[in-house]
Design a binder for these strands. Structure first.
Lengths: 209, 209
DNA sequence: TCCTTATCTTGACACTGTCAGGATATGGGG
DNA sequence: CCCCATATCCTGACAGTGTCAAGATAAGGA
């Protein structure tokens, strides 16, 4: 497992005795950080806007000014999540040999890394309908993220829709099943062996020569 | 266990003038049907127990007696969903040649069929935390469903955890991406071409000889 | 200094899931 | 036949949720 992209800064201790200034200073960033913590603890389905506000030490209606509504907050969080998702792939590629095939496998490993390290955020990005995927910023971040794999396929000699779909589906299937705790046969393996097996499985989707 | 419902009202407008009998007759089945409709229309994240009760033409607390709480209803729905998921695979296999490899591909096609035909239910089965997967009935149905693919892999000559994982991940990745409207390159294909491409991609995951 | 703007709080509303207690039908025993 | 134990369903209440309206407070420029 390689380095993960830095998480949003952890939320403040929320000292109840401390007199908090009326203006927070950087509430937007604090709310995003609190939202991701809430997401990790309660899941997408248990996500509560008021709980996020409470965690950030602010009134229940404070998020509205920065994000409009809950969908707006989750949209911003998803956009940031897609950027970190892309960064997870880049981190793996930086450690891999420059061979196009190896780079493609590395991207797939980063795909799986991200899903296993932050399953709730992965869920928000790929299976939730709560973010507004019509939003410009989120749309751009999302397209950039899953276009990256497609580009890697081309670089590795893929030419068809089938090539793109196969690699994407294999990486995504592994990521989703592993993130949700299935594929126990792989999960119980020691990390190095598991990683090697994932790489081997990813290679099956590669265009054959 | 469940009798065939005499009338599974597909969309009961809850006729206000009609005097409904105090006892419904087969409320449990009607609630399950209403729940799946609600699921299809609003998605897992928009699911509302009260809305289900209203759709079935019954008071908001009526479901409690049959299912306990919302989790209980979704657990029962998920168990039924897994059985139908398995049936979708079996339906494809019945039309395929008896060759083990072809049977395995057929199972994968059924896997994808189900996800595309009923994406919200697929989402409930695989990505939701609302059903109680510790429940005995649901656990049995779930295990039977995703054990089937693994058995097919063995029959087709698969011997390793990698073989099982590869086929499962490929089928699952295709199903999830297609159900959520991604993989547009495949979605825009005519059905026969799309099906052939999916089969071809599934074959990539098969153990090579 | 004063006023405009941004930021945050308080209060309210409709909706949700769940619980408690009451109403009604069903079926079997007397 | 009557009666009542039980299953079934309803009404009402409560806390929690997202969102809106209106007010309070701070920041910054004229």
């Amino acid at each position: 497992m390689t380095d993960q992209p830095p998480r949003l800064r952890p939320s403040p201790p929320a000292d109840p005795g401390a007199t908090r200034p009326y203006h927070h200073g950087d509430l937007r960033a604090a709310l995003l950080a609190a939202a991701e913590e809430e997401l990790a603890e309660r899941g997408v389905e248990g996500f509560s806007l008021r709980q996020v506000a409470k965690r950030a030490g602010v009134s229940h209606a404070a998020p509205a000014h920065h994000f409009g509504d809950a969908k707006g907050l989750l949209t911003a969080l998803a956009a940031e999540g897609f950027r970190q998702f892309l960064a997870a792939q880049a981190a793996r590629e930086a450690e891999a040999p420059p061979d196009p095939g190896e780079q493609l496998v590395a991207a797939g490993l980063g795909y799986v890394d991200f899903a296993m390290a932050r399953p709730a955020l992965f869920h928000l990005l790929w299976q939730s309908e709560r973010p507004d995927f019509g939003d410009a910023e989120l749309g751009q971040a999302a397209r950039a993220a899953f276009q990256h794999l497609v580009d890697q396929v081309s670089a590795a000699g893929g030419t068809s829709t089938a090539d793109e779909g196969a690699v994407w589906a294999m990486a995504h299937g592994l990521a989703d099943l592993l993130a949700s705790g299935r594929l126990s046969g792989m999960l119980t393996l020691p990390p190095e062996a598991r990683e090697a097996m994932i790489a081997g499985v990813l290679r099956r989707a590669l265009p054959r020569r």
